[in-house]
């Protein structure tokens, strides 16, 4: 049985697709057969971030409607042969998604894959609800900013009440926090919410802090998940996230920013 992960946030533009691409790649690189599904029907993006947009023939909706088989629609990643992408349809809208259809596709994928990453669209409408409905784990992507935190909080409420696990009274979805676009210097200046501020409201298990980094945008434009850029801080942070999710203990980095690192290097501890 596969473990189903939903990457969700409520708010748009916080880094859900970047995160989905990065962790799916990370899980596959760690030797787990992984599928990543784009639930953002109508606004197909994941294939761009993963650099496979030119190989899209069939999509998620085709599979749901029985117009194509899963094997026809799944695209194998060119960087890692354990990673497969199921792209969204660009010409349809979210109404084309049905609970039975999504359930059937996930069931079929579960037989073959170890992890299924569901890249949720923004909002709390059908697409987002179906992306989380079947999940076992939720990665809640949040920016250190008040509206993002509020939307994540709302999403957590939906995760705990509208999922299949909630409806069946099973063990609830495991919720993890991913704080993205974190700028330690701006936190120090009081311009950005700190990790503590965010945790005071969300109080979740922190899986990692992804620092604001120029490499994210250039990696996205190049169609290479940022986790493959091992020199970049964001890439390293995502590698930490995957390792922690898989049970490894790694200390949190990037909370104090670069200066913190040097301060530690020269023995100055706060």
């Amino acid at each position: 049985m596969a473990r189903i992960i939903v990457v969700t946030s409520g708010k748009g533009g916080v880094g859900k697709t970047t995160t989905s691409a990065a962790i799916a790649m990370g899980l596959a690189k760690a030797g787990h057969k992984t599928a990543v599904i784009d639930f953002d029907v109508g606004l197909r993006n994941l294939d761009l971030i993963l650099g496979c947009e030119r190989r899209v023939v069939y999509d998620f909706i085709n599979v749901i409607n029985g117009e194509a088989s899963l094997n026809q629609a799944l695209i194998r990643d060119k960087n890692c042969n354990l990673l497969y992408i199921l792209p969204a349809s660009q010409t349809r809208d979210k109404d084309a998604l049905t609970q039975e259809g999504v359930g059937k596709v996930l069931d079929e994928l579960s037989k073959e894959f170890q992890y299924i990453v569901c890249d949720s669209p923004a909002g709390i409408e059908k697409g987002a609800n179906l992306a989380l409905y079947f999940a076992d784990d939720a990665f809640v992507v949040t920016n250190p900013e008040i509206s993002s935190v509020r939307d994540s909080d709302r999403m957590l409420g939906i995760l705990s009440s509208k999922s299949r696990r909630a409806e069946r009274n099973e063990e609830p979805i495991k919720e993890y926090l991913l704080l993205t676009r974190y700028d330690a210097d701006r936190v120090k200046l009081g311009e950005m919410l700190s990790l503590e501020d965010v945790q005071e409201i969300l109080s979740l298990h922190l899986l990692g802090i992804i620092p604001e980094s120029k490499s994210v945008l250039s990696a996205s434009n190049a169609g290479i998940p940022v986790i493959l850029d091992e020199k970049s801080e964001a890439g390293q942070a995502y590698a930490d996230v995957v390792a922690r999710y898989l049970g490894e203990e790694r200390p949190h980095r990037f909370i104090d920013g670069k200066q913190g690192f040097f301060r530690r290097l020269f023995g100055g501890r706060k």
Partner: peptide, 23 residues
């Protein structure tokens, strides 16, 4: 925890041990 957007109704007393979020 009671998250933003959730509603709880109790016909008697209501006792909550965790936080109640804004909204």
């Amino acid at each position: 925890p009671i998250r933003s957007g959730q509603r709880i109704y109790a016909s008697g007393d209501l006792i909550i041990l965790s936080q109640v979020s804004a909204g």
